[in-house]
Design a protein around this nucleic acid. Structure first.
Lengths: 144, 144
DNA sequence: TTGGCTGCAAATATTTTGCACTGGC
DNA sequence: GCCAGTGCAAAATATTTGCAGCCAA
């Protein structure tokens, strides 16, 4: 796992490589996404960025997220009822533990998962490019 | 895996047990959900039911789906951009193969997955009740 | 300088909800 | 007959888009 600030640097580098402009808003949004380990939603990013950069709009947050997604620098966890959550610290498929009570999302340490995608590719005709493995339950804090 | 019509009977039985009324609309919706193996969306169910029962509303489709979900008789696959998809033939967690091109969703035969949930429960403080394992890729048809 | 980016508002899409009427039991 | 269920329309939610003005390169 890379250091949070390395992740941020890498994101900015990807912007440069793709000839995307490096604006203060994008810097701030990407920094939040790269540093936070809590898998924030678009709204959480918006709330945070408002503190340092009050003029920022929701549209910019979403557009920046979409761009980072395109560049493969963040992972999107889709939900329909709740809003989507984003993982900028580990932008590759990995399992998540989602507390259905407090909505917390954490990364478990779990081996023997990466071979799953290969297994599927081998056993089916599908060309598997991505996967999603989420566990739902109650976190230790909420069990108290 | 149960026979499709057995699944339908079981759903109706669950309605009875819960003192829910058995209406023609519910029968039709549940039949579609239990029989179809294509993981239909609410809209697909709506379109199908319109043929036999033209007066049915979208609200009823959603309300019936919500009820069946509550009763544990269907599995909901949440998406944020596309609409949710439902699996009435196997209402327990199991892997899915999702074609990102034609949106087809199929069930792969894949062993060595069920122990994952137990593994997580054992290794973390989480009380895991549910999980979701989806593979994204291009299906054989779309590769042609 | 200039075209990509921002910010506002309006649009879109999906699902939910309120409420009067209807029909299953 | 009673009350849960239905159907219509409106509301709620999350995200996307159009466009005028702005600023990074």
């Amino acid at each position: 796992m890379a250091h949070p600030l390395d992740r941020f640097e890498q994101m900015v580098e990807k912007l440069r490589q793709g000839n995307h402009r490096i604006t203060p808003q994008r810097m701030a949004i990407l920094k939040i996404l790269s540093i936070s380990d809590g898998h924030p939603s678009a709204e959480m990013v918006y709330d945070q960025i408002k503190q340092d950069f009050p003029s920022t709009s929701f549209a910019t947050v979403y557009k920046t997220i979409a761009l980072a997604k395109e560049l493969g620098e963040i992972l999107e966890l889709e939900f329909s009822q709740d809003s989507n959550r984003y993982d900028g610290s580990k932008p590759y498929p990995h399992p998540h533990l989602i507390c259905t009570h407090c909505k917390k999302i954490i990364d478990p340490t779990l081996e023997s998962v990466n071979h799953l995608q290969d297994e599927i590719t081998r056993e089916t005709g599908f060309k598997v490019t991505n996967h999603r493995l989420d566990f739902y339950g109650i976190c230790p804090d909420c069990q108290k």
